[in-house]
Design a protein around this nucleic acid. Structure first.
Length: 372
DNA sequence: TTAGGAATAT
DNA sequence: CATATTCCTA
């Protein structure tokens, strides 16, 4: 039994959050001189939250504009305040979207990070982001029913939009089925794409990947799973077989020979991350999560052979999620795959990479950061 | 028709 | 260079 992931603690916690903020404000009020802006910020945040909780009730989980941000559970805790980094040269994900500034009360959302240099595709994305308008469902877990739309038909979906070129006709495409949800489908601007054109690049978000991996494990590993099965299991609406296939190909590729990861044998001193206040930054590109103190076990820091680090097998069946839940990111920001499950777990056979780790630490990874 | 993999494109 | 898409073959 696996349990589906939790992802939307939202609404319930909003008021708690507000309370927390208010308390925070009281505290810093004392230092209003020293921290005028903090006070201001908090105050604004409170207001925004109040408005949010009061007026609207719809939360969309994927509003993000680009692929950065990770599924953040309760917005409160900053997890992703990554410094910033601009550089938009080669980010795989489609960023764009300059959005029109809507005057709404957008809670301050201005994270503009674009990508992580190294490209950990795992964390750099979120859901796919075809584009803003189509926020529909995409991921939806759907409790009860499943519907798969577009079976394999192929390309169907498409949110995308702009880009004109040849005005060709689009295919019929029926988008109809959205898994649940739908409560408010905005509209469907379906502009299908043109035929001759290459499909817009889709980014595999963390969430998506997570589902992918999850499906994979259910199917018994990447070697035994077939794209179609995976796709069905994932139950993500616009996903096509080809996309899954491709992703799988990559996945296999990476899981198969990660090799170089050498555990630094004698150099523990290189801490993988630095904890700064509440925010932790990762020094090397290899991020390994550091959930502050509690580093349960997970955290596969140096995965031997894995690169894809999906979900670290949660061994935690049922424990109280209380405190932790708020504190830690939903899933670690692991980067390497710890293959844990059958998947590669079994691969020991071949994968056995013996550690060749000669050169004492350092070097060896210059740029090769396993994306996965 | 689907899967797997290679060739390409970004 | 990595990741995603398309082409080709079984």
């Amino acid at each position: 039994m696996y349990f589906t992931d939790k992802m939307q603690p939202l609404n319930t916690t909003i008021s708690d959050y507000i309370q927390a903020l208010e308390e925070e404000r009281r505290k810093i009020q004392v230092f209003s001189k020293e921290l005028p802006f903090s006070l201001e910020l908090v105050t604004q945040a409170i207001e925004n939250c109040k408005q949010l909780s009061g007026t609207t009730s719809e939360y969309n989980l994927n509003g993000q504009s680009d692929c950065s941000e990770q599924t953040t559970s309760t917005g409160p805790f900053l997890e992703e305040f990554i410094p910033i980094n601009k550089e938009r040269a080669s980010s795989p994900c489609f960023d764009e979207d300059d959005e029109q500034h809507s005057d709404k009360v957008r809670v301050s959302k201005e994270n503009k990070n674009s990508d992580k240099r190294k490209s950990d595709w795992l964390r750099s994305v979120q859901l796919w982001n075809p584009d803003p308008p189509a926020e529909e469902d995409v991921t939806r877990k759907v409790p009860g029913m499943e519907l798969k739309r577009s079976g394999s038909g192929g390309g169907a979906f498409q949110p995308f939009h702009k880009e004109e070129r040849v005005g060709n006709r689009n295919e019929p495409l029926s988008k109809a089925t959205s898994p649940v949800a739908t409560g408010a489908n905005a509209e469907s601007s379906k502009r299908e794409e043109k035929e001759g054109q290459r499909k817009q690049r889709r980014c595999w978000s963390q969430d998506l990947h997570k589902r992918f991996v999850h499906a994979l494990q259910q199917l018994g590993g990447s070697d035994s799973a077939t794209p179609k099965q995976i796709r069905e299991l994932m139950n993500v609406d616009g996903l096509t077989n080809d996309e899954v296939k491709s992703h799988l190909q990559k996945y296999r590729l990476h899981t198969r020979r990660p090799s170089p990861v050498v555990h630094n044998s004698s150099n523990p001193q290189t801490a993988p991350f630095v904890l700064v206040g509440n925010i932790f930054v990762q020094s090397p590109e290899y991020a390994a999560v550091a959930t502050s103190a509690a580093s349960r076990e997970v955290t596969t820091v140096a995965a031997p052979a894995g690169i894809y680090a999906p979900v670290a097998t949660h061994p935690t069946p049922v424990s109280h999620p209380p405190a932790d839940s708020i504190k830690k990111p939903q899933f670690k920001k692991v980067k390497l795959f710890g293959h844990s499950n059958s998947e590669e777990g079994a691969n020991h056979s071949e994968g056995a990479v013996h550690s060749n780790s000669p050169t004492s630490s350092s070097s060896t990874h210059t740029s090769t950061s396993p994306g996965y």
